[in-house]
Simulated assay, not measured.
Amino acid sequence: MAYGNTDGGTGSAGGTEPEASDSLRTFGAVVHALREHAGLSREEFGKLVGYSKHTIASIEQGRRWPERGFVESAEPALGNTGALRKAAPYLTRQAGLASWFVQWARLEATAISLYTYDCRVIPGLLQTEAYARAISLDVPPLPDPEELEERIAARMARQELLSVNRKPPTAVSFIVEQSVLERHTGGDDVTRELLDHLIELIEGNWNVEFQIMPMRQPHHAGTDGPILLAETPEHRWFAYSEGQQNGRLISDPKEISILQQRYAKLRSQALTPEDSLSLLKRMRGAL
């Protein structure tokens, strides 16, 4: 999932490539020019700096953030011009978010209403650090330590959206499958902390509504997968759809209307907020 939940959006895994920016493309072009001037192929250069030719290609095309240490390894291989060291401080991106999730994250940051249904994982806005770490390490390929910390930090930072101190506070609704909670991702200790976090959040944030879709529900409007909806301050609605290593921002009113209808149906089929909180407490007591 993306750095959203997965970061990418609401799920577990995240992409490794940041949103392309002018600074990334410029940095990549400098790497490309210096490499060619040194008479090195991408494969040859990659061997010198310890990266695959595919990673070198991504950096040169401005699609991948150069990891810590890349500049110091690349400088001597490319003639010690100092160009990369001088350029590196000017690189900009929104760290820890998959490229396809960044547009949604920007909308999310100013939304006055946010609706999330997830059947795979606990939404990123509700995750604890331990839970985020567990799902990030569950889904191949494994992130390197720096990427993992960026991913978790980005996810935790997004949770400011739930604060009652925002002006105005965002009206937030979550619907989560009971099976996601019963999975005990990361083990009992991680689940115990997650349940404590959810209970505290729900009881302390009057702007957050949390509902559980029970294990047994003969009628279910969410069988097509997760739903994310956001309302802007101008009262325009957008939606986001996320899959394996990709995501799509939806602005078409007809598509959004369909998703709103499904979300409304899911709300009526899930446990009430009161019953959902009671179930969370029972689950916590059973651990």
Rank of each mutant, 00 (worst) to 15 (best):
M1L: 09
A2W: 05
Y3N: 15
D7I: 07
G8K: 12
G9A: 12
S12N: 10
T16F: 11
E17Y: 06
A20H: 04
A20I: 06
L24V: 02
R25W: 01
T26N: 14
R35W: 00
H37K: 15
H37G: 14
G39Y: 00
S41C: 06
G46R: 04
L48S: 07
V49L: 08
G50W: 00
Y51P: 11
S52Q: 12
S58G: 09
I59A: 08
G62L: 06
R63N: 10
W65K: 11
E75R: 11
A77C: 08
G82R: 05
A83Q: 15
L84A: 07
K86P: 12
A87M: 06
P89M: 03
P89G: 02
L91F: 01
Q94P: 03
A95V: 05
L97N: 05
L97Q: 09
W100H: 08
W100Y: 09
Q103P: 14
W104P: 15
A105V: 13
A109N: 08
L114Q: 13
Y117I: 09
D118A: 11
G124F: 01
L126H: 00
Q127M: 02
Y131E: 06
A132I: 01
R133F: 00
I135H: 03
S136W: 01
L137M: 12
P141E: 07
P141W: 02
L142C: 08
L142M: 13
P143V: 02
D144N: 10
L148R: 10
E150G: 04
E150H: 05
R151Q: 07
R151E: 00
A153F: 00
A154L: 02
E160K: 09
P168D: 04
P168M: 03
P168A: 02
A171N: 13
A171V: 10
V172P: 10
E177N: 07
Q178G: 03
S179R: 07
V180D: 06
V180T: 03
R183M: 05
V190Q: 05
R192M: 13
L195C: 06
W206G: 14
E209P: 14
Q211N: 11
I212Y: 03
R216F: 01
R216W: 03
P218R: 13
A221W: 01
D224G: 07
E231W: 02
E231Y: 01
R236N: 13
A239M: 03
Y240L: 13
Y240P: 15
E242L: 06
Q245Y: 02
Q245F: 07
S251Y: 04
Q260W: 03
R262D: 15
Y263P: 15
A264F: 09
R267F: 08
S268R: 14
S268V: 15
E274A: 15
D275R: 15
S278F: 09
L279I: 11
L280G: 10
K281P: 10
K281Y: 04
M283I: 15
M283H: 08
R284W: 02
A286I: 13
L287N: 09
L287M: 13
